[in-house]
Amino acid sequence: MKGLIKNDLYVFGKTFAWVLPIIFVCSALIVIFSETIVFFSETDELLYSFPCMYSCVILGFVPATLYSYDKRSGWNKYNTVMPYRRRDYVSVKYLFGLVVTFLYILFISCVILIKINTSDQLDFNDYIFMLFIMVLCSLAPVAIIMPISLKRSPQAGFIIFGIEFFVIVFLIGMASGFLDAMFEENAENWYDGSQGNFIAFGGAALVSVILYVISWFRSIKIYEKAEL
């Protein structure tokens, strides 16, 4: 398994080398200079949290992108004649996705928490809310794209994710709107008034974690049956 990880590290390092610093630095700068990271703020500050979400989605593409590179080079076939199990190959991709996501969320969390402690512009509730969104946006792409990539092709995975992403956003929007209406009357702060958002995004983040685990096992099954 170490060889598979090393291979992915090399490929990741070469192909994402210029993307990662941009994502990390831009996200940090945006958080530092933002006054709020509330997604559904009624002010113009909506865009400040969007780059973090967008970065998470891009990082969520990493496992399928690595697989598409392997497919193009033939490494996905070649490693099957080496002392690796197919489940190891799939698991390395999922682990890689988790590590990249974890590092990003950890980094952004540090930036946000420092800002919370050094200014009164952000609130801890902002951070929790942002955490839900980041978990959702980084795990959902992997959970949806990987099984389809392994069964059909990475291109099919990306296309289907693109379609499903709008469905997910629509469903979460519907749920948060419905829940918001229930809590709105007793609202004192924005997050009191956005309890619906909290529940909807918290629930969606939890579902994305569950989906990630299911997708992992499903991908292993698919790949073990695949004829390469």
């Binding site: 291979n7 090399y10 192909t15 392997d70 080079s73 033939g74 490494w75 996905n76 490693n79 004649v81």
Partner: peptide, 13 residues
């Protein structure tokens, strides 16, 4: 030791 008709190492290596 296996050599297939296409040697599948990543292009960047």
């Amino acid at each position: 030791g296996v050599v297939l008709d296409e040697v599948g190492f990543a292009e960047v290596l």
